[in-house]
Lab assay of single mutants.
Amino acid sequence: KRPMNAFMVWSRGQRRKMALENPKMHNSEISKRLGADWKLLTDAEKRPFIDEAKRLRAVHMKEYPDYK
């Protein structure tokens, strides 16, 4: 299984929150909104998620060195 990218790290928490706030919203609509919201974030706002994704990638490479 591939490590999560920055968007996936960020959206994991946001998806739960949005689903709780909008229980009747379909998952596909939540995904569209999350994508739009992510694009509106500044680089500074994205930085912690980018850093976490880099950390996850490094751990994955160490655990699965032959993964392609």
Rank of each mutant, 00 (worst) to 15 (best):
A19C: 09
F49W: 09
V59I: 07
H60N: 14
T42E: 05
L41C: 00
L41A: 02
A6L: 02
K24C: 06
A53T: 02
W38M: 02
E29R: 01
V9L: 15
F7A: 04
A44G: 09
K46S: 02
L40T: 12
R47Y: 01
M18I: 14
R57L: 13
L41Q: 02
W10L: 02
A44V: 09
L20E: 15
M25V: 04
Y64A: 15
N5A: 03
V59N: 15
M18W: 10
A19R: 07
D43V: 06
K39F: 09
A58I: 06
M8C: 08
H26R: 09
K39I: 01
L34Q: 03
L56A: 07
R12M: 15
W10N: 02
P65I: 04
L56Q: 08
L40K: 14
K54G: 05
A58H: 15
G13S: 12
D43L: 10
K39G: 09
V59E: 14
V9I: 13
R57Y: 05
F49P: 01
R16N: 14
D43Q: 06
K68Y: 02
D37R: 09
I30H: 04
K39M: 07
F7S: 01
S11K: 01
F7G: 00
D43Y: 10
Y64S: 14
I30A: 02
K1A: 09
R47C: 06
N22S: 06
W10I: 02
R55E: 08
F7P: 00
D43G: 04
A44T: 11
N22A: 03
S28Q: 09
Q14E: 14
S31T: 10
S11Q: 11
R33D: 01
L34S: 02
I50W: 03
L20C: 08
R57E: 13
D51Q: 08
P48F: 00
F49G: 01
P65H: 11
P48N: 00
L56M: 14
N5R: 02
R47G: 08
E21G: 05
P48V: 01
P65M: 14
R16M: 10
Y64M: 14
M61C: 13
A19V: 13
L20D: 13
H60V: 10
N5D: 15
K62S: 12
E29H: 03
D51R: 04
T42S: 13
H60T: 12
E29Q: 02
L41D: 04
L41E: 05
M18E: 10
V9A: 04
D37E: 14
R47F: 04
D51G: 02
T42W: 00
A6V: 05
E45P: 02
N22E: 07
N27A: 14
N22D: 12
R33S: 05
M8G: 09
S11G: 03
V59L: 13
A53W: 00
R47Q: 15
L40P: 00
A58D: 15
R57G: 13
D66T: 09
A44R: 06
R55K: 11
M25A: 05
Y67C: 14
F7W: 02
Q14F: 04
K54D: 11
S11F: 03
V9G: 02
Y64G: 15
W38P: 03
P3Q: 14
K32S: 11
S31F: 07
Q14T: 09
E21R: 01
D66A: 12
V9W: 02
E63W: 04
R47D: 05
Q14S: 06
L56V: 07
M25T: 05
R47A: 14
N27M: 10
M4N: 06
H60D: 13
H26M: 11
S28G: 10
I50F: 13
W38H: 07
I50D: 03
P65L: 11
I50A: 09
R12P: 06
D66Y: 06
P3V: 08
P48A: 03
L20A: 13
G13K: 09
K39V: 06
K1L: 10
V59F: 11
Y67D: 06
D51L: 08
N5F: 01
N27T: 10
Y67V: 14
A6I: 01
N27G: 12
R16C: 08
E63T: 05
Q14G: 01
P3W: 01
R2Q: 12
R55P: 08
A19P: 03
Y64E: 15
